[in-house]
């Protein structure tokens, strides 16, 4: 049995009798994963250990937005594509990020670099329209982002420095 299997067994055992056990288990499994996501194999293991149908586990994992089914980069860059941000040029910013990281968005609107260092997402609106265009990097909101500013931030991240 792999280490991960043993770890999942322990997580399942510790939540098994709780109400809403599946949800807490999936949260714990994702939290303890390397790239903040639930792999297919992990979902199978959870279903098996908790003795629930695979389809049920998949249903829960796809219902809650905070579960990721794909590996998440060390740094998560979220570009707002809401109306306010759009009119203030969020499209070119998005294009710039993708180009600089050599990525293409999938149909879910996300993409992750092969080395799992960066994930790029879009959102419909951050609710910070007055500060448009808005980009979040690792949950920190950056307002009135310009191409130049964005380029600097990405460069720092690429060099392994903090973004100011």
């Amino acid at each position: 049995m792999s280490d991960r299997h043993t770890a999942i067994q322990e997580i399942v055992a510790s939540h098994r009798t709780e109400r809403g056990a599946l949800l807490s288990i999936l949260e714990a499994v994702q939290r303890s994963s390397d790239h903040n996501y639930l792999s297919k194999e992990e979902l199978v293991l959870v279903a098996k250990e908790l003795e629930v149908p695979l389809s049920t586990v998949y249903s829960v994992a796809t219902f809650y937005a905070f579960f990721n089914l794909k590996a998440q980069g060390e740094h998560v860059i979220t570009v707002c594509r809401g109306t306010a941000c759009h009119t203030r040029g969020s499209k070119p910013l998005l294009t710039q990020v993708l180009k600089q990281l050599n990525l293409q968005l999938d149909e879910e609107g996300t993409a992750t670099t092969d080395d799992v260092r960066f994930t790029v997402h879009t959102v419909a609106c951050f609710g910070q329209c007055a500060l448009a265009p808005v980009i979040a990097i690792d949950s920190v909101i950056h307002s009135r982002v310009t191409e130049q500013k964005l380029s600097q931030m990405l460069q720092s991240l690429l060099e392994g420095k903090e973004v100011s």
Partner: peptide, 14 residues
């Protein structure tokens, strides 16, 4: 799920 206790299918996504 109920009649057949199989649960091959589920509502997924949101």
């Amino acid at each position: 799920a109920s009649m057949q206790s199989v649960s091959a299918i589920q509502m997924v996504g949101r």
